[in-house]
Design a protein around this nucleic acid. Sequence first.
DNA 1: TGGGGTGATATTTTT
DNA 2: TATCACCCCA
Length: 671
Amino acid sequence: MPELNPHQKTAVHYINGSLLILAGAGSGKTSVITHKIAWLIREFGVAPHHITAVTFNNKAAREMKTRVADLLNSQNTKGVTISTFHALGLNILQNSLKEVGYSSSFSIYDAEDSQALVAKLLRVDHPDAANNLAQEVQKQISHWKKRLVKPEQPPNKSESIRDIAALIYNKYEQRLLAYNAMDFDDLILKPVRLFQDFPNTLAIWRKRIHYLLVDDYQDANACQHELVKLLMGKRGVLTVAADDDQSICAEQGAQPENLRHLQQDFPNLKVVKLEQNYRSTGRILKAANALIANNSHVFEKTLWSDRSYGDPVRVLKTRSEEHEAERVVSELVYHKFKHGTDFRDYAILFRNHSQVRLLERVLCERRIPYFLSGAASFFDKTEIKDIMAYLRLLCNPNDDNAFLRVINTPRREVSPETLEQLSRHASELGASLLRASLDTGLERYLSAKQAAGLRVFTQWLANTIEQANKEDPIKVVCDMLADLHYEDWLKDTCNDQKIAEQKMKNILDLVAWLQRLATQQNGEKTLSRLVASLSLIGLLEKNSEDNPGDYVSLMTLHSTKGQEFPHVFIIGMEEDLLPYQTNLDEKGVEEERRLAYVGITRARETLTFSLAERRKRGGEIVACKPSRFLSELPQDDLEWIDQESRDHLNDVLGRGDGYLANLRAMLDNNN
DNA sequence: TGGGGTGATATTTTT
DNA sequence: TATCACCCCA
C-alpha cells in the first residue's frame, strides 16, 4: 500500500466528529475507509465491536473485509462489523423479533417473490391484467418504501399504476406479515420503524456502534439515510465517503441530494475532498472534468493527476452499428497486437444491453474471448429458486408463496382445483396452506385421490421440518435433495443432459455455499439463519468477481462502478442513446452525464468513443446525431477518426508479411 | 410436455 | 423489427 497523501491522512485521522469524504473517481476513497478502521483499532485502541462499516453490495463488503484484514495482519478484525446495508438491517431485526412482530424464521422475498405476491393480490380486481401490472406495481410499492413514505389513498378507483398500487399497498403489507415474510426494502424500513417506536432498542444499538463508516454514500436512498441518522444520534461518529458525480442509481431511489441532507442533519460535519486521481492519464481526467462541469454540484471538486498527459481521446465515426462493432473490435485487436497487452486490459462499455448483440457476433467471428457481465444472476436461476423455496418453507411453514412454488416441482399431480380448494380451506381456518393441508377437515373438500396426493407431500414435508429442527442443516438439505429425486427430475425434464448437469452443479454450489456459511458464521447455525444470510448473497458476485481468464470485458455503463481498465471503449455516443431518449429532462440529462462520466473515469491509459451515423431503432433505420456530451469535451484533446481513414486490420492484413501470421497465431493461442 | 403461435415490449440494477 | 415470455393445443 502506497503512502497516504495529506488529504487522505486528514480523513483517516479525524475522529472527533462526523466526516464527509468527498472523493473523486480513482482517488482511493475505499482505502481511506479501510485505513481509518485500522487506525481506530491500532492507534486509538477502539474495541473492534464498536466499529461498523457498511457498503451497498456484497462485493464491496467482501473487498473491504479483506483489505482491513490485510492492514491489521488479520489480528483484531474479528469484532468489526463489515456488511451490506441489508445485512445490517437483517441483523438488527433478528435481535428484535418480538418488537417487530415476526417470528425467528421469517422469509426474505426478492423482487420476483414480491411480484408474485402482488400479482396474486391484483387478480382480485384485475383478473386479466394482473401479471402485466404486477411488475410495475411492485416497483411502485418498493419505491414508496425506499422513500419512506406511505402512499396517498386515491379518492376513487383509478387506472393509473400509482393508484392501483396505493390500493393494494396495505393488503400487500398484511399478506407479508401473515406469511412471516419481508421484502428487501423491509430490511431497511423495519429497523427504522423499530428504532422510532422502541427507544430502548435504539439505545442498545447506539451503545454498540460508536463509529459508523459508509462507503458510496451517494447511492443511499432516503430510508437508508434515516437509518444512519437514527443509529448515530448525537454522539456517534459517522464517516461517509461519497462522490455525487457517480450517483447513477436514481432508479434505486438514490438521491444526490443526500449529501446536502447530510450537512443539515450533521451540522458539525467536516468535509475533506480527495481530488488526486491515481488512475487515469491527465488527458482522460481533463475530459472527465470538462464533462461533469456541466452538472450542478453541492460541492465543487476538480480531479487532477500527476501521471503523464497521455494519448488523445479518440472518437471513431462509423457508418452503421454493424460498422461500429467491426471498427471497435478491429481497433481493439490492432491495439493489443501492437502493444502486446492482454484481452483483460480492455473493456467495451455501452448504455443498454441491446447494443451488445452485434458486438458479440463480431467477437465470436474473430474468435476473441469476451466476458459479458450482468447476465442472469445465480439466484435468478429456476433450480436455485426452487431449492431456496424448499428451504424457506422448511424454516417458515407460513410461507405460502414458497409452498405454491414447491408443490409441483417435481411434479406431484396436484391440480389447480385441488389448490383452490386448499386455499379456501386455509382462509377459513385462518392458517397457512401447509397447515391447512395437514388439517383433517380437508377431506370435506377433496376427493380421496386428491387428498391422498396432497397428504403424501405434506407428511413428508412435516417430517423434514421436524428433522430440520434437530439435525445438522447441511445433512437435512442433502437428505431432502435425495428424497426429492431432484437430480432425476432434472434429467427427465431437460432435453439437453448437459443443461441438467449444469443445473445440478449449481445446486451443489448452493449446498457448498451453505456449508461455508455454516462454518463462517459465529453464533447460531440454525437452518433459518443460514437461509436468511443466503437470501442476501448474490452468488453472481462469485462469477463476476473472478473473471479468471483473459477476456475482453463487455458491460453496461451502470455495472462498471468500482472497476478500472487500462483501455476503455465507450460505444454508441449518440443523442437518444447517451443521453438516452426517455431521460431528457434536466435532471435526467444530468444523470446520463454522470453515467458518461463514470464510463470515462474507468480508463487508465486510453479512451476511445465510437458512434454510428445510422442505427436501427424499432425496425427503422434512422440517422443519428453525435451525443451532446462529445461537444462538451475539450476539443483539442479529441482525435476524430472518420470512416474514410485507415482501417487498422486491413492495414495489417494488407502488408501480407509476418504481421498476418503473428496475428493469426495470437488469435489461435487464445482459443 | 413441449413446441409453436401470439402478443407485448423495447433503460439502467442491488439486496 | 426482433426477442421473449406465456399460453394453448396436440
